[in-house]
Design a protein around this nucleic acid. Structure first.
Length: 492
DNA sequence: AAAAAAT
């Protein structure tokens, strides 16, 4: 009893998505700092002072996180939440409601940058499950004056599900602050209220998806002159050409103008080179925190590949289903499982096939109506369902700590490359999928099902990209081989 | 093709 209570406390100690487990984890692996925004004024370069009992900064070359500040402000890493001059209501929310005890690494470094005047913009990259949500939620909550009415903070997310999840975190963390929030996402057509009939938004924090937020703004139901802080979650996708770049830029421009300059925060686990260089323009005078792509792989998540085709034979989808059944026979007993597929249709098909063969599961994809989407997410989060089949709808940000198994039925590919006829993997999406497990520093396993020689080549490109080799599970027909892989991953 | 969306 005492034992499990202790484990629980330790597990929750670092924030809502924290992967760190070792108490002596090197929180000092934050690099010294060079100037980003004003390269011409090198004298403005400031050292980021890390006050750690554990000793001096590690060598920058070994650092997981590279922090770059802009301007004269000197930031000191937060060892305790008390170092951040948060209101006592917020501190209470962190300890009592969230059960945190101290800031995680990314929180220790980014929160001072977010909360210290002159409130510089920030682009922050950190590992999946390392507590990014807490960073920007705390940022929003601490910039709001609850005695004033109307929107003062905003957060834009790529999916309805992520917006709802982030709002839930904000409400819990801000439970004692009196701060109100609203979720600006599409509803089902039955309960749809036309924009002109809606009341003006009175809540302090608005969290939502780009389309609905844009609509509210043009209908003048969402007044933005008091917005102090604007957050983009999954910012690399929000600013990508094939993502929400146009919407995001429009919203950012309007709010920056209306509010007379507000703080912009960009958070994600991934920033590819293209987005990274664009992002530096967007927040040219901001602070930056980046992680090398070779260091993004989660150590506690074991990745595997399974060959689901036979040489000199035509690809056969049945083989993948047989492997999935084998994995589920072990996996179902130990936690929850997410199976990723490439298309809506294969989500439906796989759901049907597995159900027909006696394997209970649910599936979600963007073509479902919003009511069904909400219901399936709720059932899975409540632990009522064990196995969830999904498109990349849930690839990013979805936080369910009981998920310890991820199966990639199909690997993510870059659509443009597919059209060109030379498929390339989408390494960023791959990393986000993997990050659905191994949250809070838990163990996790990922099985990549390879249905052809081409898919095998795709995974090799992913391995090369992250400089991380993925072992093959041989003889999957033998019950023991998959059982052993699951055991080796630390799942029991 | 995946995602949002109420143009």
């Amino acid at each position: 009893m005492a034992e499990s209570a202790k484990t629980e406390e330790k597990r929750r100690a670092w924030g809502d998505e924290e992967p760190e487990t070792e108490e002596d984890s090197p929180s000092a692996d934050v690099a010294p700092v060079v100037d980003a925004g004003e390269a011409s004024e090198l004298k403005k370069i400031e050292e980021l002072s890390i006050t750690e009992k554990k000793g001096p900064l590690s060598d920058p070359e070994e650092s997981e996180i590279q922090a770059v500040t802009s301007g004269n402000t000197v930031y000191e890493a937060a060892v305790k939440f008390e170092d951040l001059s948060l209101s006592k209501e917020l501190i209470k929310g962190l300890y009592v409601e969230m059960g945190f005890t101290r800031p995680s690494k990314i929180q220790a470094v980014s929160l001072p940058m977010i909360l210290t005047p002159p409130y510089k913009d920030l682009v922050a990259q950190a590992h999946n499950g390392s507590g990014k949500t807490t960073c920007f939620v705390l940022g929003m909550l601490s910039r709001v004056d609850p005695t004033k009415e109307g929107p003062q903070a905003m957060c834009i997310c790529p999916t309805r599900e992520l917006a709802q999840q982030n709002q839930a975190v904000l409400m819990r963390m801000g439970k004692y602050t009196g701060i109100t929030s609203m979720c600006a996402i599409p509803t089902d057509s039955a309960s749809y209220v036309p924009m002109y009939k809606r009341p003006e938004v009175k809540e302090h924090v608005v969290i939502g998806t780009p389309g609905t937020i844009k609509k509210l703004m043009t209908a003048k139901k969402l007044r933005t002159w008091n917005i102090k802080i604007l957050v983009f979650d999954e910012a690399d996708h929000m600013l990508a050409e094939d993502g929400f770049k146009d919407d995001s830029q429009r919203i950012m421009k309007d709010i920056r103008r209306e509010s007379g300059g507000c703080q912009v925060l960009l958070f994600s686990a991934t920033f590819n080179e293209t987005v990274k260089s664009f992002v530096s323009n967007v927040v040219s005078d901001g602070n930056q925190i980046f992680v090398k792509k070779e260091e993004l792989t989660l150590e506690k998540v074991k990745q595997y590949k399974v060959q689901c085709y036979r040489e000199r034979e035509r690809p056969n989808e049945r083989l993948k289903i047989e492997v999935i059944k084998k994995i589920l026979e072990f996996g179902e007993k130990i936690g929850q499982t997410i199976i990723f597929v490439r298309t809506k249709e294969s989500a439906r098909n796989l759901h049907k096939q597995l159900s027909n063969e006696g394997y209970e599961c649910t599936s979600i994809q963007g073509a479902l109506n919003t009511e069904d989407r909400d219901k399936i997410i709720k059932e899975f989060k409540d632990g009522l369902t064990q196995v969830l089949i999904t498109t990349d709808l849930l690839a990013r940000g979805f936080d369910q700590e009981q998920v310890n198994l991820v199966i990639n039925n199909d690997l993510p590919v870059v659509y443009e490359s597919l059209k060109r006829g030379s498929p390339e993997p989408d390494c960023e999406v791959y990393l986000h999928r993997v990050g659905r497990t191994g949250r809070f520093g838990r163990n996790g396993a990922v099985f990549n099902l390879l249905g052809s020689r081409e898919e095998e080549a795709l995974l090799e490109m992913i391995e090369h990209h992250f400089q991380h080799s993925i072992p093959k599970v041989d003889n999957w027909e033998d019950d023991k081989s998959i059982a052993k892989a699951i055991q080796d991953a630390g799942l029991k």
